[in-house]
Simulated assay, not measured.
Amino acid sequence: MIRRTIGIVDYGVGNHASVRQTLYSIGYRCRVSGDRDVLADADLLVLPGVGAFGAAMEKIHALNLAGFLCDQARSGQPMIGLCLGMQLLADGSLEHGYHAGLGLIPGEVMPLEQARWHIGWNTIEVIGGDPMLQGADRKSMYFNHSYYFQAAPEFTVCMARIEQPFTVGVRRRNIVGLQFHPEKSQDAGRDLLQNVVEGLCA
């Protein structure tokens, strides 16, 4: 395997340590940074995140990273958003009022209608047969969220169910978003993360 360099975007909101440790254990070099030059030099960017959408976007703007992330994604640099990082890829969110997102994948972040919180293990269903994701079909992943990315069908690549199905994975060309935490999902999450990194960088 080529020893790729992963740039983990540090904007002050995120579980950098567990994401870095998982990627490092797979064999990747990791650079946790908010420096645009460091991130631009990476083979792939990971946008992690925990907490509220609006506060996260404020920090991204304060560090002048919003335009940079959009430019890098649109120029073809592979990017993966995890949990809140996936939601930040959307046009906007209704969490605590309306907040604009990065607008990299069309859709809005909405409150879950079936439960106040979705915490714990749940099975994902891969939609459309994307080879990067197909090995994770019917595998259980770890979730912790109360909002979800309502994306158009053409960008939806994974679903999960509480009572009704909802989107937990999105893709638009070189950009992938995963609502669950692959870094906390044991072997299934680790394998999926490696497949997505290699698929996007191929």
Rank of each mutant, 00 (worst) to 15 (best):
I2E: 14
G7F: 07
I8W: 07
G12H: 03
S18F: 03
T22E: 09
T22N: 12
Y28M: 07
R29A: 14
C30T: 15
R31N: 08
D35M: 09
D37Y: 11
L39P: 04
D41L: 13
A42D: 03
A42C: 15
D43P: 01
L45M: 06
G49V: 05
A52Q: 01
A66D: 14
L69M: 13
D71T: 05
S75Q: 14
G76M: 08
Q77Y: 10
M79L: 15
Q87V: 08
L88K: 11
L89P: 12
A90Q: 11
L94A: 07
G97Q: 12
A100D: 10
G101M: 04
G103N: 05
I105R: 09
G107Y: 06
V109T: 08
M110Q: 14
A115D: 07
H118L: 13
W121A: 11
W121G: 06
N122S: 15
E125F: 07
E125R: 13
V126W: 01
D130G: 04
P131C: 10
P131N: 10
L133E: 04
L133W: 07
G135E: 13
H145Q: 11
Q150E: 15
A152S: 13
R161A: 14
I162A: 10
I162S: 12
E163A: 10
V168I: 11
R172H: 14
I175H: 06
L178I: 10
Q179P: 02
Q179R: 02
F180A: 02
K184N: 00
N195W: 05
L200C: 05
